[in-house]
Design a protein around this nucleic acid. Structure first.
Lengths: 337, 337
DNA sequence: TAAGATCAGGTAATCGTTATCACGCCGGGT
DNA sequence: ACCCGGCGTGATAACGATTACCTGATCTTA
């Protein structure tokens, strides 16, 4: 039924030599005479031989593949991260196996387990649960992205979430806003927590108190962000500005502001998104580059693969505020900045 | 250096039985006595044994992994397709290797080659080059998505590109447009070609001739689409409507129309995108569901994996026009539909 | 010229799992 | 009493490539 595959030993026979020598040719070992090499190469082509990567990896003890675990593949942010990692891996002759935890509590451990059983060369993980005990005793190099793992020493690449949020909120404060709402994902997620902390930092240093009714930290998707934004606008004393801590939630906020034609409400988004510069007013964003995140993570991982045994490195990517209009709206009745 | 892994034979020794029997327990073979089973399970837990998936796949001849080849992982469309495939695979206990051809001519063959050398259980491919000779002699089940392969019989799942484009252009014609521009990616790509054909169909059946200067088929990204749109608008006789054959190009078109405040120009986009309903005017789109595409492709592939040997099936997903405003703009000086 | 180095090539073991096949053992049908 | 069949089990051989280790032969070099 299944067509017999061509093995290395078949090639060896055809080239009148041993499997070992054929292997040498395949792997570019220089200690093979030109003549033998030629014969082997000819046999490879003639028989249509192709290395069995599973067998090779089994023997070598490590697969030429890196595992990537993100929250969601469909999220443009993670999609960009993955894409960049794949590109870097490609250059190094590695393949990428992508998995998403979809925020399911037990899924992360199961995924990482599975990847280790495949003997991946390395892992790049966006930790969701904080419990990483499942890989405590691992030899596999791991790099964490976007979030810090708890109780686990490894390279981490993140954005300056807290500092960035502080910058964004300061920006709004500077334009005279006193009632600034905060929209984010669950505070269980480290990025949300840090961005919230930055929000609080900025308000406190300006002597503005944090109003609980202006803080919504349960926006797992754009739809929920929409609902919360509506609630904000329906308050007796609605906010004059909104800081959205994530692109996904920003889509919800923008949608509501647009539907209600509230061009008087300022807004800054943590994270850029498509058409942010096209809607009216254009959205002021804190620019974060998922590509850079992916690239730096891949570089770190590769360094480890190359035997870098130094202490874990913590890379923090700074963020840049890109004013486009929505963040420079002054509150009604104000004289402006 | 490398910690010795626990092997199945170690488990066997600890459980005072043979490797084969231990294997039987691991794989849920019923022909093991309860007592032996218990001893093996205990040993597995005590030693922390984990199957080596590489070894298992080598022995079995097939890896529990499916390979997915798309054009770009970062493209929201493909990201959604991949995400859905991954979900389906997860339910079946399979993992997904994701690769992108990035439109590099030789890359596709190399990728598929590599995946086959890994003995993937199946492949889901968005064919880029039309030459698929590299997998002609394959046993591996393959499903093509979004585009048809040339000279290769296999399951294919696509959208009704031509019919959809026809619908979109008819829509514009109905609103009185006579000068309708066409913006798309290269016609080398089958989807572009089909959508262009649908565009021509609609014009011809309405007795409108195709004007070459209103057709731009070289828009590989949003930036080029922007440039072409500018050129259209600068013509002596500019179009009154634009049909953009892809979400990516639509972003470029929308950007220009917005920058120039040309709210008098109608537009329909093939493919929805974030904020399409928020910009002004909201963009009328032909709704295509990448999730459905991914799901159907995965279902087809799984059916093949389960031994379905019937003739290749061609699945075509219909599209729905979603009027939102931009497609219902009537040309200046017209009385309307 | 002899000892040592270098080189091409080969043999056999190994990676960890699973398939093949054979072996006792027990109960039931004849 | 005897044979058959199913069951639980295990020894051994794959799966396909690589690596550790070993041959000879050729080439240096003191």
């Amino acid at each position: 039924m299944v067509k017999k595959l061509v093995r290395l030993s078949d090639v060896a026979v055809a080239a009148k030599t041993s499997a070992k020598t054929a292997s040498r040719v395949i792997n570019g070992d220089p200690r093979v005479s030109a003549e033998t090499r030629r014969r082997v190469e000819e046999a490879v082509v003639r028989l249509g031989y192709r290395v069995d990567l599973l067998a090779r990896s089994l023997r070598r003890g490590v697969d030429d593949m890196i595992g990537v675990v993100v929250e969601s593949i469909a999220d443009p942010f993670f999609a960009a991260v993955i894409s960049e990692i794949e590109l870097a891996a490609l250059r190094r002759g590695l393949n990428v196996i992508v998995t998403s935890n979809r925020r399911l509590p037990n899924r992360e451990a199961a995924i990482v387990d599975g990847l280790q059983q495949r003997r991946v060369a390395g892992l790049i993980i966006t930790p969701h649960t904080s419990d990483l005990s499942y890989l405590v005793s691992t030899e596999t190099p791991v790099v964490f992205v976007d979030r810090h793992p708890r109780n686990f020493a490894a390279d981490v690449v993140t954005f300056d979430d807290r500092g960035g949020a502080r910058t964004a909120v300061r920006h709004l404060l500077r334009y005279g806003h006193g009632r600034i709402a905060f929209v984010s994902d669950d505070l269980e997620i480290e990025t949300s927590r840090n961005r919230h902390a930055g929000y609080v930092d900025a308000l406190q240093e300006a002597g503005v108190s944090v109003v609980p009714e202006l803080v919504a930290t349960d926006c797992a998707d754009a739809a929920i962000a929409r609902a919360r934004t509506c609630e904000f606008l329906d308050l007796d004393e609605p906010p004059t500005a909104i800081f959205s801590a994530r692109s996904e939630t920003s889509l919800g906020v923008v949608k509501v502001l647009h539907d209600r034609k509230r061009t008087d409400i300022a807004m800054v988004s943590f994270g850029d998104f498509a058409l942010a510069d096209v809607v009216s007013p254009a959205i002021t964003v804190l620019e974060q580059s998922p590509e850079l995140l992916g690239r730096l993570a891949a570089e770190r991982l590769f360094a480890r693969l190359d035997g870098d045994h130094s202490d874990p490195i913590n890379t923090v990517i700074p963020l840049r505020l890109v004013p486009r209009g929505s963040g420079e709206i002054v509150p009604a009745g104000s004289a402006g900045a």
